[in-house]
Amino acid sequence: MESRVKPTIGSFHLDRRALLSSLTVLPLLSASLHSRSALAQSQRDPLPSWNDGSAKTSIVDFVRRVTDQGGPFFVPPQQRIATFDNDGTLWIEQPMYVQLAFVLDRVKGMAPMHPEWKGKQPFAAVLDGDLNALAASGEKGVAELVAVTHAGMSTAEFETIVTDWLVTARDRRFKRPYTELVYQPMLELLAYLRANGFKTVIVSGGGVEFMRPWTDAIYGIPPEQVVGSSIKTRFEMRDSIPVLFRLPEVNFIDDKAGKPIGINEHIGRRPIAAFGNSDGDLEMLQWATLAPGARFGLLVHHTDSEREYAYDRQSHFGKLDTALDAAAVNRWTVVDMKNDWKRIFAFD
C-alpha cells in the first residue's frame, strides 16, 4: 500500500566569576536540585528522549530478556552485537547523504586546479549547481566524482581532509555542523545498549574512512567498530615512511546484500540486533533477526517534516519501501519519528 507520507526537501559557556558575583544562594540551590532531579530521572529512564509507547517498550523488553542471566533468552556479553546503519539511522540523510555533500564541496574546492571540468560532466553539473544533470549522470557519474575526490592521497591525508571539512561544513537547512545533526534518541540507545554489555557497530553504505575519523567522538564507536564501503589502497614507502595510498578503484560496497558480508568479514559474529531506516538495511536486519534465539530489528521511519523530514517509499535518499513491508512480516519495531521521539536533535 502506498504511504501517504511525502518527502520534503529542503557552548554554552559558564563564566565562574560572573556566576559567583551575580547569583544568589537560592538560585544555586534550585539549580542543584534540578540537576539532581534530572540525574535521577536519567537513571530511572535510560531513554529519556523516547516517548512511552510500543517502540520504547520493545527495546527495553529485549534488553531485559537477553541480560537476564537466569532467563531462557540470556545471551552472553561476547555475543551481544548490535549493528547500526549510519545515514538516516544515526544522523541526517536529507536532502542528500552527508558524504555526497562532502563530494560536491570537494569538487568545488578542487575546480580551480581543473579548468577542464567546466565543460565536462558530471563535474560541470556540480559547478553549475544543476542537481538534475548530476542525477542524470547516474551511479557512474557519482562514482567518477568519488574517485577524483577520495583517491590520489594517503589515508592520513584523507582523514585530515574529512576532519577539516566537518569543522566548517554546515547543513543548509539547520545551519549547523553535520556532527550536531545526530539523533539524540539514538545516542541514548547506543549508550543504553553499551551499559548492558552490548558491542555497538556501525555498518553503513558510506565510506568507512569517511566515518572513522569522527564516530568515536560523536557516537562513542571506535574506528575498529565501523564497517563501510571502501576503495582500494596500496602500501608504499615514501621517504622511508610507510603509507597507505588511496586508489580510484572500488574495493567493497557495504550496502544491501553487502552488509551481511561486511558483518561476517569484519565482525566475525552474527548480530542479535540490527537498526536501520531504509531498503539498504533490509538484508542486515534479515541476517540479524531471522535466526534462533532472542533477536531484535528496528527501523527508523522518518515521519516528521517539521522537526526533520518526512519520507519513505518515494525518496531518492533513504528509500523505505520493501523493508517497511518486511517489518510487519518479521515483527520488527518501526519507530514513528514524529510520535515516538520527544526530541530529534540535542538542540531541540
Score class of each variant (00 low, 15 high):
75 V>K: 01
156 A>S: 15
106 R>P: 01
146 V>T: 08
81 I>L: 11
63 V>N: 05
153 M>T: 14
169 A>E: 07
60 V>H: 10
92 I>P: 00
102 F>L: 07
71 G>K: 11
60 V>L: 07
167 V>P: 04
55 A>T: 02
42 S>I: 13
64 R>W: 12
71 G>I: 08
49 S>L: 06
90 L>Q: 06
57 T>L: 14
66 V>W: 08
99 Q>C: 03
89 T>W: 04
82 A>Q: 01
151 A>Q: 02
119 G>P: 00
149 T>A: 08
145 L>M: 05
102 F>Q: 00
34 H>Q: 15
40 A>D: 10
82 A>R: 00
74 F>V: 03
47 L>D: 04
68 D>Y: 14
103 V>Q: 00
74 F>Q: 08
50 W>D: 02
114 H>R: 04
125 A>E: 02
128 D>L: 13
128 D>A: 09
95 P>C: 00
138 G>H: 03
32 S>T: 12
36 R>G: 15
93 E>G: 03
93 E>L: 01
168 T>R: 13
171 D>P: 07
52 D>M: 09
159 E>T: 01
127 L>G: 09
166 L>W: 12
81 I>P: 00
131 L>M: 15
39 L>C: 13
55 A>F: 01
127 L>Q: 06
53 G>W: 06
161 I>W: 09
162 V>G: 04
116 E>Y: 03
90 L>I: 04
100 L>Q: 15
64 R>V: 07
89 T>K: 03
71 G>W: 10
143 A>D: 11
84 F>E: 02
39 L>N: 12
155 T>R: 10
73 F>N: 14
154 S>H: 02
155 T>P: 06
138 G>F: 06
161 I>A: 11
103 V>D: 04
48 P>Y: 01
121 Q>C: 09
107 V>M: 05
101 A>V: 14
80 R>S: 05
141 G>L: 05
97 Y>H: 08
124 A>V: 04
86 N>A: 12
111 A>Q: 01
89 T>P: 06
123 F>I: 00
54 S>H: 14
164 D>R: 14
140 K>R: 13
84 F>D: 03
116 E>I: 06
155 T>E: 07
170 R>K: 10
123 F>G: 03
135 A>Q: 11
76 P>Q: 10
158 F>I: 07
72 P>Y: 04
121 Q>S: 09
115 P>D: 01
109 G>A: 12
101 A>I: 04
134 L>T: 02
123 F>Q: 00
146 V>S: 08
64 R>G: 14
57 T>I: 12
90 L>S: 04
37 S>F: 11
39 L>I: 15
149 T>F: 03
46 P>S: 07
153 M>Y: 10
106 R>W: 04
163 T>P: 11
